[in-house]
Design a protein around this nucleic acid. Structure first.
Lengths: 347, 347
DNA sequence: GTTAGCACTCTCGGTCGTTGAGTGCTAACC
DNA sequence: GGTTAGCACTCAACGACCGAGAGTGCTAAC
């Protein structure tokens, strides 16, 4: 017993219907709503076969069938292969980004909002992270008589800015001089290398060593923090609208997972080179998400760093719609971050 | 029929019990669990009076009573008057802030997390906002051959940093010179005044006018953005644990309110001079929150700007606990932001 | 003023048919 | 041999019903 053309068409119809209604679908429904020119009895036989093949599950004897994870997998593989992702949502995405936005974090937050409101699922956007960063510039900016702002610029944008104490009443020009020699000393280094060199510089500096000391500890933090990425979530409440989450306990677990950003980031972060990733149910590897699917795409910045955008929804997600929207959103973000001198990348 | 001492004690007992159990409390429960030396019948009579006075509600005839908003109001007024807020949570709060944190937003996010996990309710933290900002320093930092980072420092900290295009290959020292003359020209001004002066400066500048133009539009944005505060929410999922929100529809409305940050901020933002604000049920003025209470406190920064921290929970909230925790958290934040040269304020 | 007693009310949780959707199987049909 | 009509069977969902229990209000006695 193989998987012939007809079985596939029936399976497709079942998935489509279930995605729409979230109700187990019976043989009569298929034969009536989707005119296949077959009676319910025939469909029934085929469905029985499909169940045996592992594509359908049956909640109980006298309910209809629901698609299994395996079925969804087949479905999206088909979708991805065909490359049939129409970008009918392009304009909607564009419209949302209407106003110029500047700050990296604003863009990320916005993207999460847009994604969730277009898909009606929960969206997660990760800020770009990438290979080791090389220092390009270090600058001290006076903020008050006793404090200064340290800005470390790398080829990935601004990595770290923070306030440090400086000797009271220090001259802004002196700060600039320190910045210059500092920049000369460590430009082109990675953060690691720079941290190693700092002790030598500090020793050589003399009177303003204290300032460098502060800068040093800051660089240490930046190095240890690693690819410390910003995570933005949108439309968490959307999930509650689906019957899958009418059980409060489940909803709670899901939401609290969304709140532990570190864990969430590591779950969503997409590995590999593919344009899209689809993980269905158990494939997510997260117990709390065994009834969810995660679809992700990537975008990239002009400096070659990569970010991830993702949508989390019930396994009966509207995959083709979501893939399409993620596609345009990815392009859009790449465009925004790619164009010469726009948003600040930070952290 | 007045509100005598005994009635008050009984009301207190009812409130305490209901806060704990969320179940309508009956006369027998009170006479047994809280030994008042009175029989259930007497309690019953008093309860009947309390209901007439508007302090108790009755879901239906043969259920116990639940406290009304008016009762909670009396209760917390008592609490606030007595000033009996013990800071037994001080150490817990301190412990959570163990590691030094630097960035303003990190502190805010952290505070929201800590608040929610200590109270088991939902926490909202608003970044400080305050009176008009005066410019202290403007600096251009080279980030790539064609781009530079603009940092505008005000007496409230760093307000705005963003990347602008600059003529290709411009010398870092030239950038510094521009920064210097710019700073000289507008230091001490408010953002509004600075925006007005810019056209003159641009005209005078000559060859690098384009750079100033970019800075100008950036200042315009900063001015228009206003007190654009950062809002951080923690423990949104906590609310789902309470029977009040076992209805998914309610939970959804609540969560989606939390997601519209602008609206949320305007709801939570505390007006007035008081140390604490407690709004109970309908007092919140938000339909979605007619079954919630909002408790807020303030903290302040060294520059005199004020931020708000708040906890949102069911009306049967553990007010005294929450007030205590909010109190210590407020002090703690004031300390962190007050101490000389710590976290960057931004936005 | 307090308390015991009692009738009354109303929710909650369980049981029990009934209903209807859906299946699987068999036998007839093309 | 595949397709279809028919039929018996299963089982969740729904509503009605009922008893238990919690709680009240009222009255009368202390």
């Amino acid at each position: 017993m193989g998987m012939d053309e007809r079985k596939f068409r029936i399976l497709q119809a079942i998935i489509d219907d279930y995605i729409l209604t979230a109700v187990p679908v019976g043989s009569r429904t298929i034969s009536k709503k989707y005119d296949m020119g077959l009676s319910s009895a025939t469909i029934r036989n085929e469905m029985s076969d499909l169940e045996e093949l592992g594509y359908l599950d049956q909640p109980h004897v006298s309910a209809g069938r629901i698609p299994s994870a395996k079925a969804y997998r087949l479905y999206v593989d088909q979708l991805l292969q065909l490359g049939t992702i129409r970008s009918d949502s392009e304009e909607a995405v564009r419209a949302f980004f209407g106003g110029r936005v500047r700050q990296m974090e604003e863009v990320i937050d916005r993207a999460a909002q847009v994604l969730s409101s277009l898909t009606h699922y929960t969206a997660v956007v990760l800020s770009p992270s990438g290979p080791k960063l090389h220092i390009r510039n270090i600058q001290l900016v006076s903020t008050s008589p006793e404090t200064a702002l340290v800005v470390i610029v790398t080829d990935g944008g601004v990595v770290r800015d923070s306030v440090v104490r400086v000797p009271a009443g220090i001259d802004p020009d002196t700060l600039y001089d320190i910045s210059r020699s500092l920049t000369e000393a460590v430009a082109g280094c990675t953060l690691e290398e720079a941290c190693e060199r700092m002790p030598i510089l500090i020793a050589r500096m003399g009177e303003n060593a204290a300032v460098l000391q502060s800068v040093n500890s800051l660089m240490g933090e930046a190095r240890d923090a690693g690819p410390q990425s910003h995570v933005s979530v949108g439309g968490a409440s959307n999930m509650l609208a689906y019957p899958e989450y009418s059980d409060t306990e489940k909803a709670r677990n899901f939401l609290s997972l969304l709140e532990t950003r570190d864990r969430l980031a590591s779950i969503v972060a997409q590995q590999g080179e593919m344009a899209f990733t689809v993980r269905i149910g158990p494939e997510t590897g997260v117990p709390e998400m065994s009834e969810c699917s995660i679809v992700t795409a990537t975008y990239s910045t002009r400096t070659g760093r990569q970010g991830t955008i993702g949508v989390i929804g019930p396994t009966r997600m509207q995959y083709s719609r979501v893939l399409s929207i993620l596609g345009t959103m990815g392009e859009q973000l790449s465009e925004i971050f790619g164009s010469g001198g726009s948003p600040t990348e930070r952290k």
